[in-house]
């Protein structure tokens, strides 16, 4: 099954399919640019909303606007990249219903590569750059050390990995109930919205579940505390800041398992 040559070929195959969709999208430049800008505006208004909150308050959950901007930017970039790279995986149910999944199964490219690269949307760069701008603004007052730079980069990569796993794992539910695509949103976009705020706004039990049960806290919260040089308000150990890559890897492994189970279910029931 997943022997070395298949794995090695996958990124190239993904790039071919994605490139074809990029070319197709750029054939209508006006449409492409409106969608890109609209995407940036939609997520931008999210942040404007938070900024407006700060016209009446100075801190939210004991965090200032710049500090929240770091959380917001980090989770936004991570989710945006994951969404652009593999967000199409949410369309599994659609592929099942229309039978295009069967077509994909008769092609010599791993199914996950085909599903993820399908309708690759370069326009999502709009949202990613908007988040990146907020992140850059947040970075200005930070006292940068090599370790903080390293943790920030690690945070973005691990965050991407965690959202990547969420997209795949929760989309797999559609192998069983084809019309439940919105369920994954609760975890992907919901996880993103949740981590836009400092976790101090939530009760302790919620933070514990976001750490141990559905570990979105590792997308940005723990690494950001380190970068901001803050004590953990919930008394978690400070080394949690470096745990994000391990969490991401574990979740990716679980997502791979969910994917294989889903595909096996499909090929053994044909529905």
């Amino acid at each position: 099954m997943a022997d070395a040559s298949v794995v090695r070929a996958a990124p190239r195959q993904y790039a071919w399919i994605a490139l074809m969709w990029i070319r197709a999208a750029l054939a209508y430049p006006a449409s492409f640019w409106t969608l890109t800008v609209a995407g940036a505006i939609i997520t931008g208004l999210d942040f404007v909303g938070i900024a407006i909150m700060f016209t009446t308050i100075d801190t939210l959950g004991d965090f200032g606007l710049r500090e929240i901007a770091l959380l917001y930017g980090a989770t936004g970039v991570a989710l945006g990249l994951a969404d652009m790279a593999i967000g199409s995986v949410e369309q599994i149910g659609h592929h099942v219903r229309t039978g295009s999944l069967d077509t994909m199964l008769t092609r010599p490219v791993p199914l996950l590569v085909q599903v993820c690269a399908d309708r690759f949307a370069l326009r999502r760069l709009g949202r990613i750059s908007q988040s990146a701008v907020v992140l850059a603004w947040a970075a200005v007052p930070i006292d940068w050390t090599p370790a903080r730079v390293a943790v920030t980069l690690m945070m973005l990569v691990a965050g991407l990995g965690i959202f990547f796993a969420f997209f795949v794992a929760f989309s797999c539910i559609q192998f069983w109930t084809a019309d439940a695509s919105e369920l994954a949103n609760a975890f992907t976009y919901g996880g993103n919205t949740m981590t836009q705020y400092p976790l101090t706004v939530f009760p302790r039990e919620v933070v514990l579940s976001l750490t141990f049960l559905l570990p979105v806290a590792f997308v940005n919260w723990y690494p950001s505390l380190y970068v901001l040089g803050r004590e953990d308000p919930f008394g978690m150990p400070s080394w949690f800041a470096f745990l994000s890559p391990a969490v991401a890897l574990a979740l990716l492994a679980l997502a791979a398992l969910a994917w294989r189970t889903g595909v096996r279910h499909y090929t053994s029931t044909g529905s």
Binding site: A178, D179, A180, S181, E182, L183, G190, T200, P203, V206
Partner: peptide, 24 residues
């Protein structure tokens, strides 16, 4: 299926915003 999934998603966002607003 879509309806149930949608109710769940709405509720998750409701919980998030409730706590954020309570903090404000």
């Amino acid at each position: 299926g879509a309806t149930v999934a949608g109710i769940f998603t709405n509720s998750v966002f409701g919980v998030i915003y409730s706590f954020a607003y309570l903090a404000l």
